[in-house]
Amino acid sequence: EPLWIRPDAPSRCTWQLGRPASESPHHHTAPAKSPKILPDILKKIGDTPMVRINKIGKKFGLKCELLAKCEFFNAGGSVKDRISLRMIEDAERDGTLKPGDTIIEPTSGNTGIGLALAAAVRGYRCIIVMPEKMSSEKVDVLRALGAEIVRTPTNARFDSPESHVGVAWRLKNEIPNSHILDQYRNASNPLAHYDTTADEILQQCDGKLDMLVASVGTGGTITGIARKLKEKCPGCRIIGVDPEGSILAEPEELNQTEQTTYEVEGIGYDFIPTVLDRTVVDKWFKSNDEEAFTFARMLIAQEGLLCGGSAGSTVAVAVKAAQELQEGQRCVVILPDSVRNYMTKFLSDRWMLQKGFLKEEDLTEKKPWWWHLRVQELGLSAPLTVLPTITCGHTIEILREKGFDQAPVVDEAGVILGMVTLGNMLSSLLAGKVQPSDQVGKVIYKQFKQIRLTDTLGRLSHILEMDHFALVVHEQIQYHSTGKSSQRQMVFGVVTAIDLLNFVAAQERDQK
């Protein structure tokens, strides 16, 4: 057995438009009618409502009807409940999964919650491996369901041993009777949507819809739904939504950006999952974080739909894509998950301010006199920076000697690579993860907040409520011999709460 199987392995699926269902090699399930009293909570997966979006479509000038398939009504709160249950049931049916076995899954959280929910009911041990950027709410729900959680670096490539995929496979090879159901490759993922989600949409719309818009992560949702719609409703256009920084969209030119990270969760990847059939997507749109969270908040405030950030991405694209539809036509959007997962993220004004998705003037509360002053007023001194090749031991000596707790790590040209902190280095040394002679590049981390000289002290204040420091950066445009230009970030300084307090105190003292 291989040590790991690539999540982007070539698909062996034989589905073709027009091929009889009787030739399918898979076990198919028909939607079942729910009894009045459910035998367990797993029976509350599927049969989610279709809700008309009344205000947002009109606000953006849509002539067509805009409908939302509300997947956050599933038992675990997301569309991923469907595939989690289906993968477990299919693994039980073919004898792969037996009582007492362990389920391991690399996930952005929602599939993990679905699997942990099913594992709690069915009696399996469950280990979820997820990147650090995923919300604390997801972690809390997983723990409450009895799952064990392993976190991995957000910026690790999918084929790196440190990625959530790599760590999951390492655990599988170490733990007896453990299984990775593997949402990236498992046919049960798109089949769950082909058999149930798509049929529900067709039934709820009486077979009449002209466009379907869905955000894409593993691709199982859009693949399964689109294949069924292509068979039953061939005139329906399928629109895929991919965040900026991901590479799922086609044509490839759409993916060209210097951005590699994004805040919206559960969609987009740096590889093409095996289950994603991009041939059934008629057109791709890219979405960005700001519009995703703005539209998610709009869905909550104006439509009462308590959905997550990827739902915002989907609707932001839908109001663009559906401009081509006329009166009497219908566009369906998939709202994948609930706001429950993001209470401390985009639902929080403070978080939105820190990330730059909300401006101070958007909030009406009274601010102190210094709130709208610029960061450049602080008069920061030149920063202490270190090269990635310097040793951890030497870096600790320098920081202690100069009285700093942290320093930016830059390359020879001064471009920011990340940050090192005294606390992080000492804990890594004590844990045996690094040696004093190791290069400081081994303990770089990139989960820090950046701020510009033109940003306000109010925004800085919000950042420092949650973080010990902020890195002050400025952009530099560099022209190359080819005539092309590129933008790079340079370090201007490091600012802490002490710097802000000293500035405010000094100004008030001078005024007296």
Rank of each mutant, 00 (worst) to 15 (best):
G240Y: 02
G245V: 02
S246V: 02
L248D: 04
P251S: 10
E252S: 09
E253N: 14
E253Q: 13
L254W: 07
N255T: 02
E258T: 15
Q259R: 14
T261R: 11
Y262G: 05
E263I: 05
E265N: 04
G266I: 05
I267C: 05
I267E: 08
Y269V: 02
Y269R: 02
F271T: 02
P273Q: 12
T274A: 02
V275S: 02
D277W: 07
V280N: 06
V280I: 05
V281P: 08
F285R: 07
S287L: 09
E290V: 12
A292F: 02
F293H: 06
T294A: 14
T294D: 05
F295G: 08
A296C: 06
A296H: 04
M298K: 14
M298F: 07
I300T: 02
I300A: 02
A301M: 14
A301F: 13
A301S: 06
Q302V: 08
L305D: 02
L306K: 02
L306G: 04
L306S: 04
C307F: 05
C307I: 07
G308E: 02
G308R: 02
G309C: 07
S313M: 02
T314M: 06
V317Y: 02
A318T: 11
V319R: 02
A322W: 02
Q323S: 07
E324R: 02
E324G: 10
Q326M: 13
E327T: 14
G328S: 11
G328L: 02
Q329V: 05
R330F: 02
C331S: 06
C331N: 02
V332T: 05
V332A: 12
V333Q: 02
V333R: 08
L335H: 02
P336Y: 05
P336G: 02
R340E: 10
N341G: 06
T344D: 02
R350I: 09
W351F: 02
W351S: 06
L353S: 08
K355L: 09
L358V: 09
K359T: 14
K359L: 09
E360H: 05
T364D: 02
E365P: 15
K366Y: 15
K367L: 11
W369P: 14
W370C: 13
W371Q: 14
H372D: 14
L373Y: 13
R374Q: 02
V375G: 04
V375T: 07
V375S: 09
L378W: 05
L380A: 11
S381C: 02
A382F: 14
A382N: 12
I390V: 10
T391R: 06
T391I: 09
G393N: 02
G393P: 06
E397H: 11
E397N: 13
E397W: 10
I398L: 12
L399R: 02
L399H: 02
R400G: 09
E401I: 15
K402M: 12
D405N: 02
P408G: 10
V410M: 13
D411E: 07
E412L: 11
E412S: 10
A413Y: 11
L417C: 15
L417W: 09
L417S: 12
L417Y: 10
L422P: 05
G423V: 04
N424D: 13
L426R: 10
S427E: 04
S428L: 10
L429N: 14
L430E: 15
A431C: 07
G432C: 05
K433C: 13
V434I: 14
Q435L: 12
P436E: 13
P436M: 09
P436Y: 09
P436G: 10
D438G: 13
Q439N: 13
K442H: 10
K442F: 12
Y445G: 02
K446W: 12
Q447A: 14
Q450G: 02
R452H: 14
L453S: 05
L453N: 08
T454H: 08
T456V: 12
T456Q: 02
L457Y: 14
H462F: 14
L464F: 09
E465C: 15
M466V: 13
M466R: 08
D467I: 02
F469M: 02
L471V: 13
L471K: 06
E475G: 15
E475W: 15
H480T: 08
S481C: 13
T482Q: 02
G483K: 15
G483C: 13
K484M: 14
S485C: 12
S486V: 09
R488V: 14
Q489Y: 11
M490E: 15
V491P: 05
G493V: 11
G493M: 02
V494S: 15
V495A: 14
A497P: 02
I498W: 10
I498H: 07
F503Y: 04
F503V: 13
V504I: 02
A505S: 12
A506S: 15
E508T: 02
R509I: 07
D510S: 10
D510K: 11
